[in-house]
Nucleic acid binder design. Structure first.
Lengths: 217, 217, 217, 217
DNA sequence: CATGAATGAGAATTCATTCAT
DNA sequence: TATGAATGAATTCTCATTCAT
């Protein structure tokens, strides 16, 4: 390979090796999310990434570690952006409106096809990879409920909500908003996925029920 | 074979063949629930059932059908008893008490280890066996929510509850009661399973939130 | 089984055992002719004969002997009737007419679907069962050519034919009549089988060519 | 790999991969011709080719396609050379001599052991692989008869032959020459193969009978 | 360093044959 | 005697991982 060619290929800081690693990660993510751990072969991944199997093994010691790393990375990648920006209530003074906006955004994020697949994968492989379930929980529902708890404590201190147990209320909020479509998606698949409008209605209905139960009277 | 020998070997009407079939089903259920579809080999099942592989194949055409039949049967077996008895509110006049009793019973049933495994299995294999997800949903959450909807309509007509949408309320009730421990179980496994007392507390808290939101004022 | 039932079942000299044997033979013949030696399983044969595998093994020591016996019997069964009646020239004084009648009958017999299957089977299994090829040849082409040779010697002695080598002439006659449709059937299968009218034309054309070559001038 | 090493290992343009592929093809041809489709295992082929089973499967998707490709290639390989050179009458003016030379060459080619095996294989597997029978017919007897037909039309136009139906005459010629030894070989095997001298005699006798029937008088 | 090949095992499925009831 | 079950191996095909070039 000429120097010119190399610099063409290794555009923007990413070396050959790093690029291949990224290709492999993307291929593995797709394959694992679609077919599960046992349903995915290293050959498949190599073919999908357009690299040789040897290259896969040079970057990832074995299938288990490849899987772990891919799932971990995918959980992070999906969980991170939501947290920092989204997990904050835009405090407009209209509590119901603010909670709705939060709920809708959150529900849409959780119902992303890729995230649904990831959740199925993690649940299905919970026997083989228990630490992934823990990770997913912590970065997913756990983090959301943490954020909600903080929010709700603030709201309670302002007498907007009436809570004995803020964490419990946070969990109730979370699942009132998400449970219906999420459970349907887990079990009924994505052949007839909920439309965005339906999701919004579920979010709104969850918020309404939550406020009916927890709003300070 | 003499009649005596037969009655010794074949307990209660069950022929040799039926007994073998049962053994295979039990072995397959255990294996599939523990290790998943791809993680279970026909050899394993045969060995677990103390049966030759041939016998397995004489009873079940292939692995897919064995799996389907086992999961279908297990779903039925687990779903049925709950429905008829449990899904009825013992109407004592004390609504909160009645709903608590119902919620506790329901939650314990759903949190049975075997049922949790089954749910994980069905979710994990949703890609390969979509019809099993549908079946599980219909016999599980779907059926519970159906029963709740009927109950709630009756309660609304008696002015005990105030509902715009009984089905939505039923789903909210269901998931207020179940979501927290169920999602933990799905993702965190059963290493530190919720104790019965904790389950009761989740059930009670769900009922309380539900009534705060939906009780006629 | 009652004596009455037995006498019902064992109608006409054929005992239970003999009847089962016959059923097995028929099933085996069908299966072997259709799927070949290796392509046929003992299970298949037992199922087709509506007997248990054990019964098959009681009547036939093993698969090889079952195959040998079946093919031998089928060769005999098919070869015999033809010989005695058909292999004689109806001597009407019109040589061409007589040979045509003979040729047409012979060709139709050879082109019987079952006999074509048998020929394919014997050729295909020639490596595994060489004696069956010899048998088939002797009872089939060999016998026909023998009969023709005798006929032609008689005709030559009457100055109807002019032959140096009667056996060679007999073979030429045989294959002039049969080769075209027979080779097509062997290689092209029976999807578009020759119609009886076509067969007659091949037979007639073969006879015409034969007489043009061998008739005494 | 250095260029030197490559030229050592990879004879004449043929890469590693191509060489392996050739080895597999040769092994498969031998095995299939000897033992038939079902009688040949992929393990056998791999062992015979001194290749791992994986390598076989990397070159040929499955057994069926391997078989098809091998048989197709073998038919081509055997049929081709004969056609171009041999299927032309050396026109010396002596018709009988020319036809004899043609017949002898043709018969020897058809009676090549490998071609006999191939014919048996194709006939035996006609049920499983009907397209191979069609292919064999088209490249074998069909092509020969085509060529003969063309030749005979030319001869008829020169008044050397007297034909109503050139194609029929071509088929008669073909089978007068070949049928006797070919049928014997198909059914009686090659334990006592016809000697070249015998083959020549069959060829000559076929030509003689053909000319007696079809030569212009 | 990257590709094809090899390894060695294990999967699903089928088979011929024998045992036990 | 006849049936279902068992045996033990073989077959096609795939896999994770490693070697050699």
């Amino acid at each position: 390979m000429t120097a010119a060619a190399r610099s063409r290929d290794e555009f923007e800081d990413e070396g050959r090796s790093a690029r291949k690693r990224r290709l492999i990660r993307e291929a593995a993510a797709t394959a694992f999310l679609t077919n599960g751990y046992l349903g995915t072969s290293m050959d498949e991944i190599a073919a999908l990434a357009h690299v040789s199997k040897q290259t896969v093994y040079k970057h990832f010691a074995d299938k288990e570690r490849l899987f772990s790393e891919i799932v971990t990375a995918t959980v992070d990648e999906i969980a991170n952006p939501n947290t920092d920006e989204v997990l904050n209530l835009a405090d407009t003074g209209d509590l119901e409106r603010d909670l709705r906006r939060f709920a809708r955004r959150q529900l849409r994020a959780v119902m992303e096809p890729r995230l649904l697949q990831l959740r199925r994968l993690v649940i299905g492989e919970a026997g083989r990879f228990p630490q992934l379930g823990r990770l997913f929980y912590d970065r997913g529902p756990g983090r959301t409920i943490d954020a909600l708890e903080t929010m709700f404590e603030r709201l309670a201190s302002r007498d907007a909500l009436e809570l004995e147990n803020p964490r419990l209320a946070a969990a109730h909020f979370n699942w009132l908003v998400m449970s219906i479509p999420l459970n349907q998606a887990m079990l009924l698949g994505e052949d007839q996925p909920a439309t965005p409008a339906e999701l919004d209605r579920y979010a709104d209905a969850g918020v309404r029920a939550f406020l009916a139960a927890y709003r300070k009277r």
